[in-house]
């Protein structure tokens, strides 16, 4: 029997080790990040307890004065970390983003998947992907320079007129930096993500099923409404959840247009807000100067809340998207 040369065997060992390291790195990284965030949060959790997610006062305390001892941990005197305004800011702005993005993305995807052909479809598809690739700081800049003034002087006043009927739209409008502007900026970032996924899902709907509807004399809209959309429903919800996770985690663009509210809850659609991600980014520098370290722990706990929320929505998204693929295999066709 001819022996395989030892050089080949060494290469194989190297290959196994290298792929093993590469394959395990996502798990290791995720666990490492989660562990750091959890460990860093513990002092803040002990200090604030549930008040962290129910309180509205965020105050690092007198970082140059005396220290305060409470619940077995040390913090600057007068420190209080109530993150509710940021949690509400994140949830409200991302939900507004989804309310805008879902119809836009669904209709764009329908047009891309079923109405357009050839090079027009190709170019529009590329444009959607490009939109997804715009750095968030650029969209934030657009939000500050163009969108915020428009919300303050155009869209906001117009919506307040509608507010006579729909109370949620009532003013005052303010500077244009706030909840609505954040939501629109996030929508711009989320639309391409939902559109691209939904377009792919729609293209997976077998022609045979759509022809069943067409052959029955259904209009294009009826085929979409009763056959295509129900067929991809779970996957679409998954795509929305994917976009939601993105919207909640977005930092820079929201930081630039949110109005950086602190210590109060948004009182209307135009109210300044802060999101969890934006607060972590903007407050970390000053938190470093807290000798007790508690401010950093509090920001870590904020990161923990954000991580849990985004992981949850992402998991949900994966689960739902994969269920569509399972059903495809189950169907006799």
């Amino acid at each position: 029997m001819r022996k395989v040369s030892s050089g080949t065997k060494t290469a194989d060992t190297v290959f196994h080790v290298a792929t093993g390291i590469a394959a395990s790195s996502p798990v290791v990284l995720l666990l490492a990040i989660a562990a750091v965030v959890v460990v860093q949060s513990i002092p803040s959790i002990r200090l604030m307890g549930w008040h962290f997610i129910t309180g509205i006062e965020w105050n690092v305390g007198d970082t140059y004065g005396a220290l305060m001892h409470k619940n077995g941990v040390t913090a600057a005197a007068g420190a209080s970390f109530g993150a509710l305004p940021f949690i509400v800011g994140t949830l409200a702005s991302s939900v507004i983003a989804l309310l805008i993005a879902i119809p836009v993305a669904l209709f764009t995807a329908l047009i891309l998947a079923y109405r357009l052909r050839g090079w027009v479809q190709w170019i529009l598809s590329i444009l959607v992907e490009l939109l997804a690739g715009i750095p968030s700081v650029v969209i934030g800049l657009w939000g500050m320079v163009v969108l915020a003034p428009f919300v303050a002087h155009g869209l906001g006043p117009a919506l307040t007129h509608v507010g006579v009927v729909i109370p949620y739209l009532r003013g005052p409008v303010g500077t244009g930096m706030g909840l609505l502007t954040s939501g629109i900026v996030l929508a711009v970032m989320v639309v391409p993500i939902i559109t691209a996924t939904t377009r792919d899902l729609l293209q997976q709907v077998p022609v045979l099923y759509r022809e069943g509807g067409i052959g029955l004399g259904m209009t294009t809209w009826e085929v979409v409404r009763y056959i295509a959309v129900p067929y991809i429903r779970e996957g679409f919800i998954g795509a929305v959840a994917l976009g939601w996770g993105r919207a909640m985690g977005e930092t820079m663009a929201v930081l630039m247009v949110s109005g950086n509210a602190i210590n109060f809850l948004p009182h209307n659609l135009y109210s300044p807000i802060s999101s969890m991600a934006a607060v972590i980014a903007s407050q970390l520098d000053s938190a470093m100067s807290d000798g007790s370290g508690m401010a950093v722990h509090a920001l870590s706990e904020l990161a923990l809340v954000l991580l849990v929320l985004t992981l949850f929505t992402n998991l949900l998204a994966r689960l739902l998207v994969s269920r569509v693929h399972h059903r495809r295999r189950g169907v006799r066709a």
Binding site: Y209, G217, M218, A333
Partner: peptide
């Protein structure tokens, strides 16, 4: 063409009931 297809029904090579609908709704939808 939608009016034409309401007058002229079609049955396809492979069975293609609407996969998300019940037996009843497959017929009731039209």
């Amino acid at each position: 063409p939608v009016d034409v297809r309401r007058m002229i029904g079609m049955v396809f090579q492979k069975p293609n009931p609407f996969p998300t609908l019940s037996i009843f709704d497959n017929i009731a939808l039209g």
